[in-house]
Design a binder for these strands. Structure first.
Lengths: 339, 339
DNA sequence: CTGTTAGCGCTTTCAT
DNA sequence: ATGAAAGCGCTAACAG
């Protein structure tokens, strides 16, 4: 009853050897087996509902049709979900199954997770981060590794990143195209050019914004913040401060959606209306955006595409280097033509 | 060189047979092996950094130290994350590694996923849903199965659910304790008692609210909705309608956080202030709550605890039946004493 | 065209 | 107190 049907069951039923069955089922060409035999095998396999034991096969072939997704965080952020989903889809297309582990940002935990996965014979590893800062494994595992949403420090790894330079440019060009001539940039880290404190992605996003605005002759005012996180409070603070200290603008760029949410509150408190008095464009296209009114124009982070890409690279093979995934501007109701 | 160190490498180095090494490393008692031998084996294993090949072991023992988490949705909702995280933690504590798959609600896809996992020798299966409605597998897999966040239709499965009855009671008692004598219930489905259309969890939540309020002599007014989802728009509509049609209340229960977010907007439009004019309590403790002002009082869904519990039951063994996980009231700024 | 044989790395029974 | 041998289910040389 319980125990599954094996190759030898199929062989018995088809009246052939195990070998022949294996060859046929694996579509091995060249080995001239009769069409009759072939048919008998397929019939038998179908009738018995034969499914190969992948652990046995893996033991022999050193391939498990399995890969490991090692993430610093899978819950407590809305970003991991889409990455995992994209990865899952690419894995399924390749008949692979995916292990997911969470390290909570602890390097020891990450090493532990990697070893556990290697012990189970994974064919490849995706090292993902939602914080944007990747933790490299102590020693190179014997399988392909792809870094997801984190830059490779020395360029010796395959890494998948959002194309922040193009994304920043899109946001800027959107406002420029609407005729805005003076904008605030809400949430610029004080140590912008210190790679120790500011991840590559953010650095590129901001510099791209600054360059694009300046090239177009737009007056762009960075409004810095010193908080730990880009959250709604940071948005409220920076927006309020900009309102108080700086000359008025017709538009702001919030460096992410949470900042934008906070800025909405600040504008509302100040009696300003979005988008009538001030346009807001931001980044991420976070799920929270659906709760904001007016609906936020934002440049979406392509997390699902990145997740997908990461396993494609891991499973299909690729040269090391940076692979950029396009960001997409979603124009909604928070931006309109301005002075 | 790549290939990993095996039992026989350790045996060579320790000057013993493979058998002896296996016995010792697995802590097999009874087999009288000398302490000296034992020591030599441990030393050798340590020096060579031996790690057992789990596929080989699994082939022999029929145990893979692996389980499968089959979810209808892993992204596109903030609920799956915490469930997965809880499950992951329990798995790690048991030295198991977890496969995650997504079926997108498609039964065929689910069967496919289950087979793929069984082919890889998973020791147990967790069938999770974020929609609350579980899809049973066509045929019982040969391993323990736990239903996560879905009721077992005939009670023949192990299933893990939030304790909605107690949760509903808590929300009601909170408002009762604050002195509210008349409340609206925002978002009651029109077909509340049709199990085909309303999942068990919601049914219990609402009936518990109604019963608790009525037992306390509180005047409770269900405000129905006919939309597909409990989203912010549904909240805005129901709250607006209640404001228009019904006698005023000092408090409302929103049936989830998105409804509450919409109700906030409706109250704001009507010039009502939360909590000064109307208290709001809701359910879920969704991540979006952190963007609402004033901070929302809500009864948290225990998704992480449920995820954890599901793999505990799957891996440690359990009788079939319903396992309820406590919901917790988070009192924040949206509720205050009322008339 | 087909079958025999060996072996992947491990556990486990049975001898010694 | 230790080892030989068989076998989990599969693939892959190599014979016939």
């Amino acid at each position: 009853m319980s125990s599954r049907v094996t190759l030898s069951d199929v062989a018995d039923r088809a009246g052939l050897s195990i070998t022949a069955v294996s060859l046929i089922l694996n579509g091995k060409t060249g080995t001239g087996l009769s069409d009759d035999a072939r048919q008998r095998v397929f019939d038998a396999a179908l009738e018995l509902d034969y499914r190969p034991n992948l652990m046995a096969r893996g033991l022999r072939t050193e391939k498990s049709a399995t890969l490991g997704f090692v993430s610093d965080r899978v819950a407590s952020t809305r970003y991991a979900g889409p990455m995992i989903r994209g990865a899952l889809r690419a894995a399924r297309e390749r008949s692979h199954t995916m292990f997911v582990t969470e390290t909570e940002g602890d390097p020891a935990e990450q090493n532990h997770a990697i070893e556990a996965l290697l012990d189970r014979g994974v064919d490849a590893l995706v090292l993902a981060t939602v914080t944007g800062r990747i933790q490299l494994p102590e020693q190179r595992p014997g399988v392909p590794v792809v870094l997801l949403n984190g830059a490779s420090p020395d360029g010796s790894h395959i890494s998948v990143l959002p194309d922040e330079t193009a994304g920043g440019r899109q946001a800027a060009e959107h406002l420029i195209g609407l005729g805005h001539r003076r904008v605030h940039l809400l949430g610029v880290p004080v140590h912008l050019d210190d790679p120790e404190r500011v991840i590559t992605q953010v650095h590129r996003r901001i510099h791209s914004l600054l360059n694009t605005f300046r090239d177009a002759g737009v007056d762009v005012v960075p409004v810095s913040y010193e908080r730990e996180h880009w959250d709604a409070d940071a948005g409220f603070d920076t927006a309020s401060r900009a309102l108080r200290d700086a000359a008025p603008v017709s538009a702001v760029v919030a460096l992410n959606d949470a900042i934008a949410a906070g800025a909405y509150e600040a504008f509302r408190s100040a009696g300003l209306r979005v988008p009538e008095d001030v346009s807001v464009v931001s980044f991420d296209d976070d799920e929270i955006v659906s709760f904001l009114r007016p609906r936020l124009s934002t440049v979406a982070l392509p997390f699902e595409a990145m997740g997908r890409r990461s396993v494609e690279l891991a499973l299909d093979g690729a040269a090391s280097g940076e692979y950029l995934e396009a960001m997409h501007l979603r124009v909604r109701a928070s931006t309109r033509p301005g002075a």
